[in-house]
Amino acid sequence: MIKLYDYLLSVNCYKQRLLLSILDVPYERVDIDFYPGWEHKGAEFRKINPLGHIPVIDDDGYVLWDAHAILVYLASKYDPTGSWYPVSDPRRLGEVASWMLFAEGTTNTASAARLHVSLDYDFDLEACQAGAHRLFRVLDEHLWFQEQQGQEWVASGESPTVADIALFPDVALSEDGGISRLDYPALRRWTERVQRLPGFIDMPGIFPVAKAPA
């Protein structure tokens, strides 16, 4: 069974739990003693990931770190429909890769602001917030135009991809880092669409949405 080195309050770990839940793949959580032990920075854990970061997965001896890389692996291996990481469609695949890189930016701005505010991490809060607004503006416009073309997800096509998972918590938890989504109505609609996916699971701080109408 897949082992996920995990911490409940980490957005990057949550992305894995979310995809695993949506794909209905069983896994075992290994809870990292983040505080006060800083276990992920310790020598034992660095044997697993020398960078000292979570999440890490161990899939029957195959060890992989980096949140977005793990999403790619899980979707490629465990999604029989091939739609979450669309390797057979070069154009969509390119878009997915592009938005996954974009998500590195939202993680380093929006989610970093949140860590600063809630766990007192040492980041430049104002720079993180301004950076997040720059990216959200681009993403909101993109999603608005997607809607105009009858598209619901960040990459084109009928169904969501790992890029939606990679972006989702950075956006959905942004207010916790002092980043209002007042100016991004298309982003607010998209986060609700993600929340209505079958198999969706919550993370603390994400407000529940009502069911879609029958």
């Binding site: 809607e147 109505p185 609609r189």
Partner: peptide, 14 residues
């Protein structure tokens, strides 16, 4: 807001 913003079961922030 625009009418199109008011999708079903959604609350628009304004």
């Amino acid at each position: 807001a625009s009418c199109a913003d008011l999708v079903p079961r959604h609350v628009v922030k304004a």
